[in-house]
Design a protein around this nucleic acid. Structure first.
Lengths: 232, 232, 232, 232
DNA sequence: TATGAATGAGTCTTCATTCAT
DNA sequence: CATGAATGAAGACTCATTCAT
């Protein structure tokens, strides 16, 4: 298979400026958009600057003009695209800290709705958050996420201590569980959509699914009718 | 920072063969090991063949000698490393089809224990399963996973129809939820481990956490005391 | 012996641009020149892109900048160097179609004079026209040559039918014979020049030689005083 | 287009020995055969040793076992395949030296018949004789050919001095003309065969064509009714 | 602001060759 | 005899980056 050529999105060939024209002020934004989208689709390591430029209808040299460096482009994507979105999801959570379970379900809902409106978000997150190594931004991402996670976990741990949530759960894991229940499905829609009975699942259905799972899962066990699996 | 140099694992410099003697028969296996591990750590696209070779203590040319092609190396990793592991996790599930909820919890347990014993597994899966794009293995992976998923979903859908599991759940989504609750945490241990109260979480704790979440989450709601979130 | 090193033509080391100033517009042309010449001398398959670049005083990467691909470089050589020359030789021939023999002698003359002025032409033609195999240009060359050949052969066949030229000749072969009598000698000058009595042979002498051979050879036999050879 | 893979000739996969088995004595010959054929088809520079080995049903290492070196393989092809054929064509010519024109026509006939029986001969000759540079064997080839050519040219020059052959001809060029009229057509059959009226031309037709052209062309001009072309 | 030209470094791949068995 | 394993060197191509205009 050809390694995903640099063909611009069907319109706007390098010939002349572009779509919304937008003066030249929009070019930086367009580049960030293209970069973000391509990073999410193909992965950061597999996306050449030339590809980004072509998709934005400009020259590779212009990318360097605006962002100096590949690294700084990555930083810009994190700072100006990823981080704002994360804020948007987590900030409202602070208010809910009284009822941690509701807070978690609330975050899940916002996460899904936000991600559904910003298709590149889940893919970028899932892809680039894994792996201790490479892309420097991880560090940035980690910082973002770690702080947010801390704010969520403390109330959960307290609630568990008070016997308000299922004692089988690890508060520290609930944040990852949340990501796994929301962003991973959203990032892999193209895969599970083909499963029987999946065509009709939209983001609201996902919200319901996750809410049901979380709400019941968090609740204190009335009677655990399902035995825990044997220790292999 | 330099993009992750090719320094071999601190021992066995190109000088002479290596490890367990194993004749030269082991060379191919060592290469597959190195490749698998590096793919999981750094991502496929970010892993140069030279890096793999160096980690196995050989020349890049030898990688081509054994695998001809980068593509065929990827194929080999999928066929000889990834696929067997997947089988190991899903095959025993067939027996459980009578009690779908138990089956799911069973898969989760095996998945976590398997992955804990094979550190590269979660990272490789999460990383390379996302994104409709390039790496051909996706196709292979999809095939592997789709079939397995089908076998799991049918019983779940039946059970839901019989009113045995929470009607708020989407059977087609449960497979992804499962992956999200098991492999994603395992792939990101290095991140959440730093959270307060997380140092002590080992794979058995994760099994308990996921089992609790799933078992309760799947159970038919006695009374859903947590209200679904408003429609934004 | 080392396989023909990449030493540039003794002047203009990578240091600075070159030649007739010509701005940088000439760079592409210089590369085409170098490529054409080297292809003719050493053969296409034996000419590395690095060699071409070095001979033009630039980096291999620049060759890719201008021609993307090795294949496209070959295409450019055919389209921008070879084809124009062929046109120049064959186009004037159309006028002569009344007297096919004269037309053939005319083509021979133009071919020799053109080739003498463009030393790479005979070598490139002879070398790369042979062999049904690889180099895609063959296809192009064939097309070029086939059409031209067709225009020449028809009148010859007609003339033979009218008894105006030697009936022992095959019209379809006369085109190859022509090439063999003109381009092959020109491509192998360096060999036969060393023969006794050959030092003084210049292109005009070759024109005379070929004209004499063709003119008499085409003429209707007055009396074939030389017996055909026995059937082995 | 894929660069002509190494697929062995439809039978005899590396699995076990081969066709005629012939003991192992024949292997060297088989390798020489394969090499000769491939050199003629694809050109020397474009033929990898691995390809030759595959075509002969053996390992590349075995090629080195028999011929030590690529260069020595080339030498062997020249010495054991090309040279004998050339002898066969030119040796009988010595007898004819009394009538040089007949001698030339005789050589042409033998050349064509020999080449027709040894399909690789014309291609190899034409391809590898051009170009002063590369393949070391040229030197060998030149020596072979130069001596033969000398023996032919002397009588021709004498005959011309006696007024027995067309004075417009250059004796030193007649040898090349001869090659051009015989080997070039034979090496390019695959091209001109597609011309109208060419399907039926076999090697005997070629012998007639060349004999006619040479016999008349050599003959002393009764009256040169075709004017020489103007000096450009 | 924007780009075409140019390059050094790096990646994948092929190839001739060697050597122990 | 014959081969599988192994490699150094070289070739094609890509890429991030710089710079003069």
């Amino acid at each position: 298979m050809p390694p995903a050529a640099d063909n611009p999105p069907a319109s706007r060939r390098p010939g002349r400026p572009a779509a919304a024209k937008a003066g030249n002020a929009g070019q930086r934004e367009q580049l960030l958009d293209a970069a973000t989208e391509l990073f999410a689709q193909r992965g950061v390591a597999a996306t050449a600057i030339k590809t980004i430029a072509t998709h934005a209808g400009v020259t590779p040299a212009l990318v360097h003009y605006y962002f100096r460096d590949r690294d700084q482009l990555l930083d810009a994507v994190v700072d100006e695209r990823l981080q704002p979105l994360v804020e948007q999801v987590f900030l409202p959570a602070a208010a809910d800290s009284a009822d941690p379970a509701a807070m978690l379900v609330g975050i899940a809902g916002r996460l899904i709705r936000t991600a559904a409106a910003t298709p590149w978000f889940p893919g970028l997150w899932i892809r680039e958050i894994v792996g201790a190594d490479g892309q420097l931004h991880q560090r940035v991402l980690q910082k973002i996420a770690m702080q947010r996670a801390g704010l969520v976990i403390a109330p959960l741990a307290a609630a568990r201590a008070r016997g308000e949530i299922n004692p089988g759960l690890e508060p520290a894991l609930l944040m990852v569980s949340l990501i796994g229940l929301t962003l991973l499905p959203l990032a892999t829609t193209h895969i599970w959509r083909r499963l029987p009975g999946a065509k009709a699942i939209d983001s609201e259905a996902l919200v319901r699914h996750v809410s049901a799972l979380l709400a019941h899962g968090l609740a204190v066990s009335p009677q655990a009718q399902i035995a825990p699996p044997p220790s292999a």
